[in-house]
């Protein structure tokens, strides 16, 4: 049975991390996900527009939500960017909490063909969709090449785990454990290290570069010390600071790193049998050599 989603890829997945958008498109058919892209929707504000003008960010997001609600028979709205998830959840919390405010914002967006956001949208990061809509058993049954022997460090970042109330994290839906669960379902080993729930530092890269890169460098170093082969992230902005900026982070903390960082759809794709190149891994700044070596070793081992 296929799952149809109103798909919001975000800006960065189509900008500086094109391999994220590409790898999501590559694995969607393998998981029977039908992606209906919201190609008219605008940026979520990423916390920056919120900082400038809260109502403006809420209005832009309400418009995106309304567009998603127009997608016929969609299970939910889906994003592949934690920062979008966090920024949109924050807007949605305000819109859903207060009907006067919702009416006020709807008045602004309704000038566009009577567009209107109705309370109660279900907006999920791909990670949540994997666990809650597809299910870990189903995911396990689709694995073609278990990630046996691959030691993966989960890097959740901030926007997808905090604040827990707003993001609907509780005992029933332990969304702050999902990366752990998915890595295991794919056959990999979870590496616990100090940075699992810490901040990549990206939001202040233009304001306080030293502090920003110190954060990225420290978590990468901790993952190396814990013997991880690679990290996996559900957020392209974390990927920018942990991968694209990794050579600069090395200089700031004075330590060689060389830690590959995968997007979540890339890790899933590997286990579903796709090749690193098909998943855009050649576009990473830090070559995911350990992951590629692992994938060829597995292929070599399973050859007759």
């Amino acid at each position: 049975m296929s799952i149809k989603v109103a798909y919001w890829p975000g800006c960065v997945s189509r900008g500086f991390t094109p391999e994220l958008h590409g790898s999501m498109a590559a694995i969607a058919p393998l998981l029977d996900i039908e992606l209906v892209e919201l190609d008219r929707a605008a940026c979520s504000g990423a916390g920056v527009i919120q900082e400038h003008n809260q109502e403006l960010a809420d209005s832009l997001n309400a418009r995106t939500f309304a567009l998603a609600q127009q997608v016929d028979s969609a299970t939910c709205m889906m994003n592949i960017c934690s920062t979008c998830q966090g920024a949109q959840s924050e807007s949605q919390e305000r819109l859903d909490a207060n009907s006067d405010y919702r009416d006020h914002v709807n008045e602004t967006i309704s000038r566009e063909h009577g567009l209107r956001y109705r309370k109660g949208l279900d907006n999920k990061n791909f990670l949540w969709l994997l666990v809650e809509e597809i299910g870990l058993d189903e995911l396990r049954s689709r694995v073609k090449r278990p990630l046996a022997g691959l030691k993966v460090g989960p890097f959740y970042g901030c926007y997808i785990v905090r604040p827990a109330d707003r993001l609907g994290i509780d005992e029933e839906r332990p969304r702050d454990r999902y990366l752990h669960q998915v890595i295991e379902a794919l056959g990999g080993s979870v590496i616990d290290y100090a940075g699992v729930y810490k901040c990549c530092g990206f939001p202040i890269i233009t304001m306080n570069r030293e502090v920003s890169l110190q954060q990225a460098g420290r978590h990468l170093g901790d993952a190396i010390d814990a013997d991880a082969d690679c990290l996996v992230v559900p957020c392209p902005l974390c990927h920018l600071n942990l991968d694209l900026q990794q050579p600069l982070a090395e200089r700031v903390i004075g330590r060689d790193l060389g830690m590959p960082v995968l997007h979540l759809p890339q890790l899933v794709g590997l286990a579903l049998g796709l090749e690193p190149k098909e998943l855009g891994m050649s576009r990473h700044v830090v070559r995911p050599t350990s992951v590629i070596d692992w994938s060829t070793a597995v292929v070599g081992a399973s050859a007759p």
Partner: peptide, 30 residues
């Protein structure tokens, strides 16, 4: 004037009022 809604002060609507039937937690389209 900028309109900043602060939920700490305004609180939350206490009803499951309007538009969506209570059982439809997923997307509206559903």
């Amino acid at each position: 004037q900028r309109y900043d809604l602060n939920l700490y002060i305004s609180g939350y609507d206490d009803d499951a009022d309007d538009d969506v039937p209570a059982d439809a937690k997923a997307g509206d389209a559903k």
